[in-house]
Design a protein around this nucleic acid. Structure first.
Length: 625
RNA sequence: CGGGGCGUAGCGCAGUCUGGUAGCGCACCUGGUUUGGGACCAGGUGGUCGUGAGUUCGAAUCCCACCGCCCCGACCA
């Protein structure tokens, strides 16, 4: 405690309590301390928030690292830590340092502009929400451990908001009484908290994160669909403006059905979602949902005789195929599953295909299935795993065949006999036709696109950065958010909700835009548009004067510029500017200056070119246009 | 929560097996020499070795418990 701290305890329950009570100091003292610290800075420096666009490295809090902390695995996470954008406080909790916050604000502002343009209105709801609202919709219990529940001094229950449907619906029901007030679309940019099972990848899967969430209210479904389309467009604009490669994909609409939900993914190899898309059409879907069409050609007639083949050690389809010298697409694998009702089921897939658990879950009775244990396989088929197949099994074991398998003939599968497989197997002759034929596999590269336009699917990975959803009346009914329509009837409002992971976008953008030297910011989210590196600033008056002049000119032109005026070696300055990803760099040095020139390097292209110093401003303006 | 790994200076690591004055590189501070791709020399600052409890004359090191973090699986912006 400072010597002049009050000896009296603060009052017990003050209306307002400063976190560190101390006697008021003359403000002059503070100013003196500040100016004493900051006075030695050369040249003009930012004196207020109005000068936000103007910055120099001798003033900016920059903390770069040569080595990434071991906590980070993912490249974007490492780079964010090395560039000093973020700092970890706890698992899934990050401080946005000044440089990082500039980036986050850039993303926010693009999002705000597009939301406003789309007719949404910004508001700000509390981060902490009373339990009662969540109990109304039943989600207090349903949301589960992902929700951070807290208790106040009166033992009342609250949560730190993981999302805001309940709060916004509460607002709507108390404010909106008439169809004349509809439609309306509210949004906010808020800190959310979701107690993730396993936070990882830095800000890409943090527990506390920044999200833009919008909620629209409508008198009817047509109006909801209109706004949904507008928001779809707004989201596309946001990600385009941010300079990201992205894809909107059809998402699971669950019980609601219809064309009601899309996810927006930034394409990146490190993405957690696998996507299928068609390069020649608009089709794109999460692999969990992408339909695998039945083969175009009907099943060929049987041409081989059924025979047993020796497969002493071959349990995997690819090994069996290799042993027999046939393609793996001639093999069929059987996967043993057990339903919650205890039914033992065989799922048949082509050897090179993989089971899609979401799809098979939609087959009758297969909701909440699990994989059979080795004991269950042995007792039902009298055979160890690795050699099981659909031939000669007990007639009451249900066989679910993938569409592809159902169209196969003369295939190879397990013989239900250790160390043997069967070849030349044919449905209808060697075993009954399968009880169920369904789409139960993941699509693969080269599958025919299900939109019927003749394209062929490709797979890629994506990071989900946005999700739009037609909620319909789920919340408005539960919470009685009703209005009077033109016929004077009380009607629940149609609702839509639209989320963007603002902080996640920063990580996703780096994942998509980096090289060995560091981050390469897309223009729209760069913390600074231009870096001026002054080589020999503290040694050469000419360099100093030229760099300061450019800095002043750029600033006056409204360009966000970072002047590197440190007394560092050039290598360090270049390395720092590259690590933090400034898209354009002007180098001012004695050599080029002697010819009246400066050097320009684009962060991405990396090739240096000389520019007359008088042309620097217009040249950069051209680059930024 | 299950399986694996790690906690030693701001960051990266050695030391732990076999107990005996806590080390290296980077960063930071002072002085000097340097200055177009992360300089060099000299001198320095900084660690109750994650926490607690034990064993021991003596614990970073051995024993026990706890906490935290990271990686692999089920959640999602």
């Amino acid at each position: 405690m400072p010597p002049n701290a009050p000896s009296k305890k603060p009052p017990k329950s003050p209306v307002w309590k400063p976190s560190a009570p101390r006697v008021k100091r003359p403000s002059v003292l503070n100013n003196q301390r500040q100016s004493a610290k900051m006075a030695p800075l050369p040249g003009p420096r930012p004196s207020s928030l109005l000068d936000f666009a103007i910055m120099r490295t001798s003033h900016l809090f920059l903390s770069t690292l040569k080595e990434a902390p071991s906590e980070a695995e993912l490249l974007s996470h490492k780079l964010m830590l090395r560039a000093g954008l973020i700092k970890r406080l706890g698992s899934g909790l990050y401080t946005w340092m000044p440089l990082g916050l500039r980036v986050l604000r850039k993303v926010e502002s693009v999002v705000r502009e597009e939301m406003n343009k789309a007719g949404a209105q910004e508001l700000l709801m509390p981060a902490v929400q009373p339990a009662e609202l969540w109990q109304e919709t039943g989600r207090w219990d349903v949301f589960g451990p992902q929700m951070l529940k807290i208790t106040d001094r009166h033992e009342r229950n609250f949560c730190f908001g993981p999302t805001h449907e309940e709060v916004i619906t509460d607002i709507a029901r108390s404010e909106i009484k008439s169809y004349k007030q509809l439609p309306v679309n509210f949004y906010q940019v808020q800190t959310k908290f979701r107690d993730e099972i396993r936070p990882r990848f830095g800000v890409m899967r943090a527990r506390e994160f920044m999200m833009k969430d919008a909620y629209s209210f409508h008198a009817d479904l047509a109006s909801l669909q209109d706004t949904y389309k507008v928001m779809y467009g707004a989201y596309s604009n946001v990600f385009s403006r941010l300079g990201l490669q992205f894809r909107a994909v059809a998402a699971d609409t669950g019980a609601i059905g219809g064309d009601g939900s899309h996810e927006f993914h930034v394409l990146a190899d490190a993405g957690e979602d696998l996507l299928a898309y068609c390069p020649t059409s608009e089709f794109a879907a999460n692999v969990e949902l992408a339909e695998a069409l039945p083969p175009a050609a009907p099943r060929a007639a049987a041409s081989e005789a059924l025979r047993e083949v020796d497969t002493p050690k071959q349990t995997a389809c690819e090994d069996v195929a290799a042993l027999l010298g046939i393609g793996i697409e001639r093999t069929v694998k059987a996967i043993a599953l057990v339903t919650t009702a205890g039914e033992f089921v065989l799922a048949l897939l082509r050897g090179d295909h993989n089971l899609n658990e979401v799809k098979i879950g939609k087959v009758d009775g297969m909701l909440d299935f699990r994989f059979a244990t080795e004991e269950e396989i042995r007792s039902n088929l009298n055979c160890p795993p690795g050699f099981i197949g659909p031939v000669g099994i007990n007639a009451n074991i249900r066989v679910i065949a993938d569409r592809t398998v159902a169209a196969m003939s003369d295939f190879v599968c397990g013989a239900n006999k250790p160390k043997f497989h069967l070849a030349g197997v044919n449905f209808g002759r060697d075993l009954p036709e399968p009880a169920v034929v369904a789409d139960i596999r993941n699509v693969v590269n080269g599958d025919v696109c299900p939109d019927g336009k003749g394209g062929v699917l490709e797979l890629c990975r994506g990071i989900e950065v946005g999700h739009i959803f037609q909620l319909r009346t789920k919340y408005s009914q539960a919470m009685k958010a009703e209005f009077l329509n033109e016929q004077n009837q009380l009607t629940p409002m149609e609702m839509g909700c639209y989320g963007i992971g603002v902080s996640r976008i920063v990580g996703a953008a780096i994942e998509q835009n980096h090289d060995a030297r560091g981050i390469i910011w897309p223009q729209a989210m760069a913390p600074f548009a231009v870096a001026i590196v002054a080589v020999g600033y503290h040694k050469s008056d000419a360099v100093k004067a030229a760099a300061e002049q450019l800095y002043a000119d750029f600033s006056a032109a409204g360009i966000e510029v970072l002047l590197d005026d440190r007394n560092e070696r050039p290598g360090s300055m270049f390395a720092d500017m590259e690590l933090i990803g400034i898209p354009h760099r002007i180098t001012v040095g004695d050599k080029a200056l002697a010819n009246g020139e400066v050097e320009y390097v684009a962060r991405r292209a990396g090739e240096m070119q000389k520019i007359a110093i008088g042309d620097a401003l217009s040249f950069i303006q051209q680059q930024l246009a």
